[in-house]
Computed example of a mutant assay.
Amino acid sequence: MSKEIKIQYEEAEAALSKLRQSVDSWDASFPKEIGGANKLEVINKLNELNAQCQKMLETYQELLLDNQQTSKQSVEDMEDTDQSLHSMISMGR
């Protein structure tokens, strides 16, 4: 049984690039202030919830970008390792 790990580098890089583009183009903005001069408690609560949702989406977007970058670096490192091993094996023949 083979325990070889096969990575399709082009596919992985394309998927990570697509993720990056999607996250970069994502508009995570919520209305900052609704109700204008209206001082109803429900309007104040909605404004607070919108601010919390805005912060949550911004944090999620940052996490996605961090994960995308880490994954991209892992794929690049694995490709470099594959190339190094290939060179070492080729020299040994």
Results as ranks from 00 to 15, higher is better:
Glu79Ile: 07
Gln69Cys: 12
Met88Leu: 15
Met78Asn: 03
Thr59Val: 04
Leu57Asn: 00
Gln68Gly: 01
Ser71Met: 06
Glu76Met: 06
Tyr60Trp: 05
Ser71Asn: 15
Leu85Ala: 08
Tyr60Arg: 10
Ser71Gln: 05
Glu62His: 05
Gln73Tyr: 13
Thr81Leu: 14
His86Cys: 12
Leu63Lys: 05
Asp77Ile: 08
Asn67Thr: 06
Asn67Phe: 03
Met78Arg: 07
Gln68His: 06
Gln69Glu: 09
Ile89Glu: 08
Glu58Asn: 02
Val75Trp: 02
Glu62Trp: 01
Glu79Thr: 14
Glu76Cys: 08
Met88Glu: 11
Lys72Cys: 13
Thr59Phe: 04
Glu62Ser: 12
Tyr60Thr: 12
Glu62Lys: 03
Ser84Trp: 07
Thr59Ser: 09
Ser84Gly: 10
Thr59Arg: 11
Ser84Lys: 03
Met78Val: 09
Met78Ile: 03
His86Ala: 10
Tyr60Ala: 13
Met78Tyr: 11
Asp82Ile: 09
Asp80Tyr: 09
Leu64Gln: 06
Lys72Asn: 13
Lys72His: 10
Leu57Gln: 00
Val75Asp: 01
Ile89Ala: 12
Leu65Met: 02
Met78Pro: 00
Thr81Phe: 07
Glu79His: 15
Met78Asp: 02
Leu85Glu: 09
Ser74Leu: 08
Gln61Lys: 03
Lys72Glu: 06
Lys72Arg: 04
Glu76Asp: 06
Ser84Pro: 03
Glu76Ile: 13
Ser84Tyr: 05
Leu63Glu: 14
Leu64Trp: 05
Glu76Gln: 12
Glu79Lys: 14
Ser74Val: 14
Ser87Phe: 11
Ser84Glu: 11
Thr81Gly: 05
Asp82Tyr: 15
Ser71Cys: 10
Asp66Ala: 08
Gln69Thr: 10
Ser71Gly: 14
Ser74Pro: 02
Tyr60Gly: 08
Asn67His: 07
Leu65Ile: 00
Asn67Ala: 13
Glu58Trp: 00
Ser74Asn: 13
Asn67Val: 06
Glu79Cys: 10
Glu76Val: 12
Leu63Tyr: 12
Leu85Arg: 13
Leu64Glu: 04
Asn67Arg: 08
Gln68Ala: 11
Gln83Arg: 13
Met88Val: 09
Ser71Glu: 04
Asp82Gln: 06
Thr81Asn: 14
Glu76Leu: 05
Ile89Val: 12
Leu85Cys: 04
Ile89Gln: 05
Leu63Gly: 09
Ser87Ile: 15
Thr70Trp: 03
Leu57Tyr: 02
Gln83Thr: 12
Glu76Trp: 07
His86Arg: 11
Val75Phe: 07
Asp66Phe: 03
Asp77Ser: 15
Leu64His: 02
Gln73Thr: 04
Asp66Arg: 02
Thr70Lys: 10
Thr70Gln: 12
Met78Gly: 02
Thr70Ile: 04
Gln61Ala: 03
Asp66Leu: 03
Asp77Trp: 05
Gln61Val: 00
Leu85Tyr: 11
Leu63Met: 15
Met88Arg: 09
Asp77Thr: 14
Val75Pro: 02
Glu79Asn: 12
His86Glu: 11
Asp82Trp: 13
Leu65Gln: 00
Ser71Arg: 01
Ile89Asp: 05
Ser71Ile: 02
Asp82Met: 11
Val75Ile: 06
Leu65Asp: 00
Ser84Ile: 11
Thr81Tyr: 15
Gln68Tyr: 01
Asp82Thr: 08
Ser87Pro: 07
His86Leu: 14
Met78Glu: 03
Ile89Cys: 02
Gln83Lys: 12
His86Ile: 13
Leu85Gln: 13
Gln61Cys: 01
Asp82Val: 12
Leu63His: 04
Ser84Thr: 09
Leu57Val: 05
Ser71Tyr: 01
Glu58Tyr: 00
